[in-house]
Design a protein around this nucleic acid. Structure first.
Length: 491
RNA sequence: GGCGCAUUCGUCUAGGGGUCCAGGACGUCGCCCUCUCACGGCGGUAACACGGGUUCGAAUCCCGUAUGCGCUACCA
């Protein structure tokens, strides 16, 4: 941990995000991408996007496309790529062959069955298994003979005998004993390169200076470091990010709700809110500020402040963050993201001016875009569904229909249908009838929104407009007169 | 099993030996604002995993224990 002090990064960096396209982009992946984004933003340089699609069975073009969409939606910007690792396989093989030629790697003729047996035995004896270097020093003639016989072989890396050290920006100076790694495989017996070979080769070719990735790669790093060296590449600086946990402190799983960018998007989360929330899951600006735009975070981002312990994903706080952005962003910035939800709510063709006014009225009251789109629906409907249980107190007042009818008549005769006039009108009607304003306001709100809560009544009515207000009041009066029975078509 | 990493309010975190009977945020509770709801404001609630050291002094440094997690493939 001591080494962390003063590891602030100032020069240009080359960072990369290298997801494998196996479905949706999960929160862990997004956060990794975001920290890379911020590091690049802070220090300058380049962000390389590399798709690790070598596991062809699980990868396809659509998934690659999806990752790019999810990243750009989130607000992560990359400078180079996407590069497909699958297209670089020949290069990886070529580099592995170089290691073989330089005797930094060797052919291993051991069969999987043999290795499995040895591994099982070692486990039974209570120890850990590492490759016993059976083929590490075969005589050249022996090798030639076996190749001649057509025996398949894998290519193994000659792991160093010294302990391996590297710098991890999150955890400090790391040191692994030599026996922590064995002579791992570079090329499978079918000739294809393994993950370790591909990653290191690509990181070298792409001149990556900082590898920011998940903690699950921490134990792989002592394998990668000597491989960088053997291939003549500069060893990058590492930063291994802790995992993201679910509320049960286990690996985040679906049963606690959305876990992927696509799902958050579908729920109506704004990209900057997701981005902002994710950044805070493992990093803090060090001052008591939390809601910060990407550019600002980029300016003050500092790997020094990355947290080393796992964090529980808190959906509530994400929703809160979303609410912050929903109400503070300019409406025009929100609109593009909102559009699909409006369409879904059947409001695609709604009157633009009224829609806009309605959105302004409701956005600070909604936590998601989906909620917002649903909330403004009341301004564009022929009939409203009332919160029936909450209507009990209105039904208990036999004079209410008359009062509301008077209110409606008064409002309809107003020369100007604006909130000041509406309020003055309502207070006048209430006064004439010996009522408190609230005695009209609350039932009117129910009549015009179907709910007990919502924006200030006169704002609501102004946006609703004269015609709809009259109609909805009429419906509600009829509803009250029926004693609360719903018309046929409304159940 | 082996190796590694982690451990501050329910959750995200601040904290780099004294300024910490531990600060901020989400949540929660109460109050204010108010026609309701939300926003906002104010206040309350609640934490240094445990045990040993080191030190005049430890949340902070060291060692152990516990717990959690990761890795331990011819997967990535």
């Amino acid at each position: 941990m001591t080494e962390r002090q003063g590891t602030v990064i100032e020069g240009p960096v080359r960072v990369r995000f290298a997801p494998s396209p196996t479905g949706f982009l999960h929160v862990g992946g997004v956060r990794t991408a975001i920290y890379n984004d911020l590091l690049r933003l802070h220090a300058g340089g380049a962000f390389v996007l590399r798709i690790e699609d070598t596991d062809k069975a699980r990868s396809d073009e659509a998934m690659t496309r999806q990752i790019q969409d999810a990243l750009s939606w989130t607000g992560v910007r990359w400078d180079e790529g996407p590069f497909l690792q699958s297209e670089r396989l020949p290069r990886h093989t070529e580099r592995a062959q170089e290691l073989l030629a330089a005797d930094k790697a060797y052919r291993c003729f051991c069969t999987t069955e043999m290795l499995e047996a040895q591994r099982a035995e070692a486990q039974k004896a209570g120890g850990s298994f590492s490759y016993p270097r059976t083929c590490a020093h075969l005589a050249p003639e022996e090798i030639a003979r076996r190749i001649g016989e057509g025996q398949p072989f894998a290519v193994r890396f000659r792991a160093p005998d010294e302990s391996i050290r590297f710098l991890d920006l999150v955890r400090g100076d790391m040191e692994f004993p030599a026996d922590a790694i064995d002579d791992f495989i570079l090329l499978r017996s079918d000739g294809t390169p393994t993950y370790h070979m591909s990653v290191v080769c690509d990181d070298i070719d792409m001149a990556i200076t900082h590898v920011v990735r998940g903690e699950d790669h921490l134990s792989n790093t002592p394998k990668h470091v000597p491989l960088f060296l053997a291939l003549g590449g500069a060893v990058p600086v590492f930063a291994h990010l802790p995992l993201i946990l679910g509320p049960d402190k286990k690996r985040l799983s679906k049963r606690f709700g959305a876990t992927s960018v696509e799902e958050f998007r579908a729920e109506g989360i704004l990209p900057p809110a997701l981005y902002n929330y994710m950044v805070l899951l493992g990093w803090s600006p060090g001052e008591d500020r939390e809601v910060l735009p990407r550019e600002e975070m980029g300016r003050i981002f500092d790997v020094d402040r990355l947290n080393a312990s796992a964090a529980v994903f808190d959906r509530e706080k994400l929703l809160w963050m979303n609410g912050q952005y929903m109400s503070s962003l300019a409406l025009d910035e929100v609109r593009p993201y909102l559009e699909p939800f409006l369409a879904e709510a059947g409001l695609a063709g709604a009157d633009p001016a009224r829609l806009r006014a309605a959105l302004e009225l409701h956005r600070s009251r909604s936590r998601t875009l989906r909620d917002l789109a649903a909330a403004v629906g009341i301004y564009f409907r022929d009939e409203l569904a009332y919160d029936v249980p909450a209507c009990a107190k209105f039904l208990a007042d036999p004079d209410l229909p008359v009062h509301l009818a008077a209110l409606r008549d008064h409002w309809m005769e107003l020369p100007s249908f604006d909130k000041e006039a509406l309020e003055a009108g309502l207070r006048a009607v209430a006064g004439e009838r010996g009522l408190k304003a609230g005695a009209l306001i609350h039932p009117a709100r129910m009549a015009l929104s179907g709910e007990t809560g919502g924006p200030p009544l006169f704002d609501l009515v102004e946006v609703m407009g004269r015609e709809e207000t009259s109609r909805h009041l009429g419906h509600f009066i009829a509803f009250l007169r029926r004693g609360g029975a719903l018309p046929e078509h409304q159940d």
